[in-house]
Amino acid sequence: MKAFSYERARTPAAAAAAAERTPGAKFIAGGTNLLDLMKLQIETPQHLIDVNGLGIDKIEPTPEGGLRIGALVRNTDLAADMRIRRDYGLLSRALLAGASGQLRNKATTAGNLLQRTRCPYFYDTNQACNKRKPGSGCAAIGGFSRSLGVIGVSDACIATQPSDMAVAMRALDATVETVRPDGTARAIPIADFHRLPGATPHIETALGKGELITAVTLPKPVGGTHVYHKVRDRASYAFALVSVGVIVQKDGSGRVAVGGIAPKPWRVEASEADLPRGAKAVAAGLLAGAKPTHDNQFKLTLVERTLGAVLAEARG
């Protein structure tokens, strides 16, 4: 690990201002992903701003009938909150499908959204990676790409966003609230939060320099049956090959979001109109324009079949 200076921030706005002002600064909350990457010198911050003391760790009702989840709410606490379990079951299920008990106890809501890809070529500092070292190339393309993205990818990067939680947030139409270094707040729809790689895969989110996530808000509950299936190489504590989250209403309408296949939680609202026609029709719309590699083309079939299983479960 490279040496770094350390400070504890006092307010969200002060943290954002410090992050903009200080060269090489990064926020640290749970630290479960950042410290892993710092040990490998994939991340080399010169200064860490500890945001754990900011008090933004509560889940509160919004005037619109939804919930405002503080950025520092731990994954365990979010998954276990009775309001989430009752009204936003997809979110609990997605969280509980991710990581281990120890990690969920530490990892935060904001940190989960910001976690980096688990592409093996991003992790191996001997390999070319445009995300880790812009302009160096992408060793994953033409490499061992079984776990990597099939849609939304580019010639510069085929990494996936690994969060389970983000898949549920996308289906639930969550909004990411932030504070900027000048103290102003803004709200970013989850659909616009993660960026597609294009030619700049190192820019992963819509956040500006120093901008700090303060909360994630959920609109009022939409009801329906919530189901999340995660397909992975072992039964627990592994990243998804494919994950599918659905919210299905009694009239057959619903929402579908998919993880493990793209640089962002993948949802194509137009394809949801095909839900009454079944998984094959929805998957065709979801995956239109997919560019799989030889190694990961199985994911296209896997999405369709997992969606079929999820819809069967949701419809009882």
Partner: peptide
Amino acid sequence: CDHGQCGACTVIVDGRRINSCLTLAVMHE
């Protein structure tokens, strides 16, 4: 493993189990 994958470093902090390898000591004031 020193990377949060094996759990050998599990300790209980304020009543919750965590991987002690993936947290900085200075964060535990």
